[in-house]
Simulated assay, not measured.
Amino acid sequence: MDINILRSVATVLSLCAFVGIVFWAYSRRNTSRFDEAAQLPFMDENALQRAQEQS
């Protein structure tokens, strides 16, 4: 097996992993979780404690 074939296989596998991560990040079932995480820096201390207690 040639080293170039191994490099090609590694490139294809890396591309597949990247595409899988992108689909996972933009899937609809993760939207609410990511929206909540995006708002964490703007929450005050009491709201942050309530959010931690609920999860």
Rank of each mutant, 00 (worst) to 15 (best):
V9G: 01
Y26L: 13
D44P: 01
A17G: 00
R50S: 09
I5A: 13
A10Q: 02
R50L: 09
R29M: 07
T31G: 01
R50P: 05
Y26N: 12
R7T: 06
G20H: 00
F34T: 10
S55C: 04
S8H: 11
D35L: 15
A25C: 09
A17Q: 01
A51Y: 08
S32R: 11
F34H: 08
D35V: 11
A37W: 04
F34D: 04
I21F: 06
T31D: 12
A25H: 10
F18D: 05
L48Y: 12
D2W: 11
A10S: 03
T31H: 09
D44V: 03
L13T: 05
F18T: 03
P41W: 00
N30K: 03
P41Y: 03
Q52S: 05
S8V: 03
L6R: 13
L6E: 13
D44H: 01
I21K: 08
Q39V: 01
E45R: 09
S14T: 08
Q52A: 13
S55L: 07
E45K: 09
V12D: 06
D44Y: 06
M1A: 08
D2M: 10
A17L: 10
S14M: 08
W24M: 04
L15Q: 04
R7H: 12
L15R: 02
F34Q: 11
E36W: 02
R50K: 14
M43Y: 07
Q49R: 13
A25K: 13
A47G: 15
A37T: 00
M1Y: 10
G20D: 00
F18E: 04
Y26P: 04
A17F: 03
L15F: 08
A47V: 04
G20S: 00
